[in-house]
Amino acid sequence: MSICFDKVSKSFGGKKVLDQISFEINKGEIFFIIGKSGVGKSVTLKHIIGLLKPEQGNIFLDECCVNELNSEELTILRQKCGMVFQHPALLDFLNIKDNVCFGIRNQQLTAEELKKSACAKLALVHLNEKILNQYPHEVSFGMQKRVSIARALTLNPQYLLFDEPTTSLDPISKNAINDLILELSRSLNVTSVVVSHDIDCALKIADRILVLEDGKILALGTTTEIKNSKNPFLIEFLSETFINSWDQVS
């Protein structure tokens, strides 16, 4: 096991977003967290890297209790993680090269080494070096997403966390990003945790899927187990999208 949630609860303004949830994520797997809007998917993801602290329960990352770490320890732990946010979250005032290399800019590297590193990371997400000197607003939204993935890879993380990576993308870009998640996870041998509404994508690339509903775990299992679940809420939730996607996969 590499990530473990142990009876984690979290509320915002009196509303319980996570209610005593417990699950484990194994090393090297692609783990999807799906559910309707507002059920606590992104909140779950942010707990993994200590951007949020639980009210109850513990979160363990590599046997280390994340919620008990101080800010310095958290900074060290976060080096193991790369996160791709719902927004590309690129810094507007930096060009693509500086955005990608932002995490390693204090490592005493020469300008040439930084450029080389940026090119290498951009190549991993299938972008070429022509965009290095462009600013985020000068490239498409899909490209910005890819750049944000490249930036997340800069510190060679063991964990990749994706928060709605395909939101606001056209179907072609969506597929490309999904393929990229699969490719990176396998080729770099990292553990990927993906928060998504996109059941198509989950069925296509996930090893296991966690379904959240009203802050509780509705289902947890492989794609086959999820598909065969007799839980009426889950059947309703997956309904048409699931069936269509399953047909495509099989």
Partner: peptide
């Protein structure tokens, strides 16, 4: 609101 602050935190900034 566009997660840039969280992204900076994750980049050890």
């Amino acid at each position: 609101t566009t997660d840039q602050l969280d992204a900076l935190k994750l980049l050890k900034i």
